[in-house]
């Protein structure tokens, strides 16, 4: 490839940054839907990494099929997770994480 050896690192930085943003969101929020949004941002980071690897190595076929699989799985997880959130809301009337500490580690 014509890419210099640093190009992978350059875009890899954005993968890391997206992951930081997503984890930050998961850690700091008290809203269940926001937690899911953070989870989505982390998944975006991973999707980006897969495509980046595919481009860097020229192996776009496998990378794309991997990314498509990931997207299909991701949407099912989000659907189930939002189903859980909606059920929590029906039961507790709130989607605040702080009302949610019955079980102690």
């Amino acid at each position: 490839m014509a890419d210099s050896v640093y190009v992978f690192w350059l875009f890899g930085i954005f993968v890391a940054l997206l992951a930081i943003v997503g984890f930050y969101c998961i850690l700091i929020t008290s809203n269940l839907i926001r937690t899911l949004i953070g989870m989505e941002i982390v998944t975006k980071a991973v999707t980006f990494l897969i495509i980046l690897v595919g481009r860097s190595t020229g192996n776009t076929g496998l990378a794309q099929s991997f990314a498509i699989t990931l997207i299909v799985v991701e949407v099912v997880v989000i659907v189930v997770a939002s189903g859980v959130v909606i059920s929590v809301f029906r039961r507790n009337g709130s989607i605040d994480v702080n009302l949610f500490r019955n079980l102690k580690g």
């Binding site: 992978f8 993968v15 992951a19 984890f23 998961i26 269940l32 937690t35 989870m39 982390v42 998944t43 980071a45 991973v46 990494l49 897969i50 980046l52 690897v53 595919g54 860097s56 190595t57 192996n59 496998l62 990378a63 991997f66 990931l70 997880v77 189930v80 997770a81 859980v84 959130v85 929590v88 949610f100």
Partner: peptide
Amino acid sequence: SFKYIILSAVATAALLASIALFMM
């Protein structure tokens, strides 16, 4: 269930990132 979903998502992200790096 929600805790499991979040933890599992984090684990999955690590798993996926490692698979991608192995593809390098």
